[in-house]
Computed example of a mutant assay.
Amino acid sequence: MSPLSCTLLVDDDETTNYLNQALLRRLAITDTILVATNGQQALDLLHIHCEQLASPTCPALILLDMKMPVMNGLQFLEAYQQRASGRPAVVIMLTTSLNPSDVTQMERLPIAGYLTKPLTKEKLQQVLQAHF
């Protein structure tokens, strides 16, 4: 499988972003990695990188944390859905919670799925096989 053109990591934890970037690079899953530390930064990046439909830096995959300052994952999803431009990305929620109420809430979201942290090679391969 050829690498994705671009992946967007959205997480307020710098260590998590660093580790996820290292994993994506090591596995050569994506050509470009964009990083945002909250939902608002992610929307700003999407506005810049997805202005043109065929842009190679418009993310095909968004790995989204649920709990962040400024704009959390739920608020991001709401704003992302209202966005009319660009091709839709596969959005995967990353969480540390397996609380049944959190799982139920995530299953109702407009996302392709959710994964528990930490991100691993096996989890990424499952996402790629299921959605690309």
Rank of each mutant, 00 (worst) to 15 (best):
L53K: 15
F76M: 06
Y80S: 03
N72Y: 12
L34V: 12
L45Y: 08
K67R: 09
T30Q: 01
L64R: 00
A60W: 08
H47E: 15
L46W: 09
R83V: 15
P88C: 08
V70T: 07
R83L: 08
V35A: 00
L43M: 10
M66L: 14
V70S: 14
E78G: 01
L64A: 00
M71R: 09
P88W: 08
L74V: 13
L74E: 13
D65S: 01
A36Q: 05
D65V: 00
T32M: 06
C50W: 14
L46R: 05
G86Q: 05
L64Q: 01
G39V: 07
L34A: 01
G86T: 14
L53E: 12
A89T: 07
V35H: 01
Q52F: 03
C58I: 03
M68I: 13
T30H: 02
T37C: 09
T30V: 14
N72S: 10
I33Y: 11
M93E: 02
V90E: 07
L61H: 05
A60V: 05
Q82E: 12
T30E: 03
A60C: 04
I33S: 00
D44N: 14
I48R: 15
M68E: 04
D65C: 01
L34W: 12
D31R: 13
E51M: 04
F76E: 04
N38L: 10
D31Y: 04
Q82W: 12
Q52N: 14
R87E: 15
A89V: 11
